[in-house]
Simulated scan of single mutants.
Amino acid sequence: MEHVLRPIYQERASHPDTLGVILINKRDDATNMTDTFDAVLLIIVKEGEQPIFTKHYLYGETKMVMHIVTEKRLRKWLFIGSNRKLVDWIFYGKVLFDRNEFLYKLRFELQEFPFYGRKIKTGIQFSKLIRRYLEGKEFFERGEYLDAYNHVVDSLHHLGRLSVIDSGLYPEVTVWSQVKKIEPAVYKLYEELVMSNETLEKRLELLFLASEFLINSRTHDGAQHILEVMLTRASWTIQELHDHEELSYYSTDLEVFVEYLIDKGYIIVEPVIAKNETIFHRNYCVDRRFVENEYGV
């Protein structure tokens, strides 16, 4: 496959903006790893007119895809964990071009998994867990058990990814095989949800009780990143939090997460008078006394 794609990637490699080129061939035991294509050509560039540019190719009966991705979008995917195949592609794909050892350093970075990287990924996954758990519980309390079930499954996936991240690894596509080895208790919860002979209502009831305990036990680590960012200023509006480069990765989960941390005592609501004296702006700051007790900062 490499010889077929050589003219394409060599042309791209000659561009000064191109950082690296990786070839991923389809494996018989993992056809979905390449999104059913026979080969994936991943090209990472410093900057581009579009964050993602894709082309499909045909060579006889062989179908191929080329993805050109900016470094910024690549790192966003790695932080958020929204493109789990990407980690497998970077680790196991064949490097065809590597400018100034960009891909070598990236692989090393992923393998070492710096502590700071773990904190932001933990925060993002924890915020997603909170949203799915709270929404699922709301459906459950309304008696809408199938919708509650979908949300609980998603929340358990985020809980599983947190277990993998906490162990210093990157969540792979086959995350549950990782969780089974790393944190059997979380794997058991997932197993009980999908395989138990209990009624759906009973399964959900037990899962919400167990999940609440696990969520509370992880709040300390899950909140660390956002609190460290917020401690850099005395007070924040919600828009300022959304606009912060790192907190923007939390996306739509940010506001639910902030409300959760208010409820848990980590964040204080600070009323600020608006133009209309009967209405106040709602600003946010970290309860430093609480954080000192929790983190010793």
Rank of each mutant, 00 (worst) to 15 (best):
R6K: 14
I8N: 11
L19V: 07
V21C: 03
V21P: 03
L23Y: 03
R27V: 05
T31V: 13
N32D: 15
F37A: 07
K46P: 05
Q50P: 09
F53V: 15
T54G: 10
T54F: 03
Y59D: 15
T62R: 15
M64E: 07
H67V: 05
H67R: 09
I68L: 10
T70H: 02
K72E: 15
R75V: 07
W77S: 13
L78V: 05
G81F: 03
N83T: 08
V87L: 13
Y92R: 11
G93M: 03
L96P: 00
N100Q: 15
L106K: 03
E112L: 09
F115A: 09
G117V: 04
R118I: 06
T122F: 03
K128H: 08
L129Y: 03
G143Q: 05
N150Q: 08
H151K: 14
V152T: 12
S155N: 01
S155I: 07
L159A: 04
G160V: 03
G160P: 02
V175T: 15
W176D: 04
V179W: 06
E183M: 08
V186Y: 01
E201H: 13
L209W: 12
S211L: 14
E212Q: 12
L214A: 15
R218F: 01
M230H: 04
A234M: 08
W236G: 02
L241Q: 07
V258G: 02
L261Y: 01
K264C: 03
Y266S: 04
I273D: 15
T278Q: 13
R282H: 08
N283G: 06
N283L: 10
R288M: 11
F290T: 12
V291F: 08
E292G: 04
E294I: 09
Y295L: 00
